[in-house]
């Protein structure tokens, strides 16, 4: 269920790499755990993010949760559709529910992330 072509962070975010650009979102497990997402506090485009640092806050009817960036770089695109339709993250976390695109400073950081199989095991173990 977790796409094979993505890399995963232990804080339940994913990254899809295209050249030096990384699209980031949260995983199926994360959206399922959060429940109904009612608001996404998005970052500004052109802002900097650090690997393991916060990209923004997701509000669900249950709680607030941070989205953690798997990589360091500059945010070049923000999914503004989420402003009015944050539930898109619930509905399609690996597709239309993407959150930001980051221009990476150091692609070698990707080496520290999990692949789909490792992440699947990680989720099972943390349950």
């Amino acid at each position: 269920m977790n796409p094979e072509n993505l890399k995963y962070h232990k804080e339940h975010s994913w990254v899809k790499v295209d050249g030096n650009r990384a699209t980031i979102g949260i995983t199926e497990y994360a959206q399922e755990s959060l429940g109904d997402i009612v608001y996404m506090d998005l970052p500004e485009a052109d802002s900097q993010v650090e690997a393991d640092g916060e990209i923004g806050e997701i509000e669900s009817t249950k709680a607030t949760s941070s989205v953690v960036s798997p990589v360091t770089g500059t945010i070049v695109k923000v999914n503004e559709e989420l402003e009015d339709a944050p539930e898109t993250i619930n509905e399609d976390p690996y597709g239309k529910g993407w959150i930001v695109v980051v221009e990476m400073d150091d692609a070698s950081e990707l080496g520290g992330l999990m692949d789909a199989e490792e992440y699947g095991k990680f989720v099972e173990e943390s349950k």
């Binding site: 429940g35 109904d36 009612v38 669900s60 009817t61 249950k62």
Partner: peptide, 22 residues
């Protein structure tokens, strides 16, 4: 159901989603 702890009780937090149930 998804469960939650509430004052020492393990209780259903939601079944089909909070907004839907609401």
């Amino acid at each position: 159901a998804k469960f939650t702890g509430f004052h020492g009780w393990e209780m259903p937090l939601e079944y089909s989603g909070v907004v839907h149930e609401h």
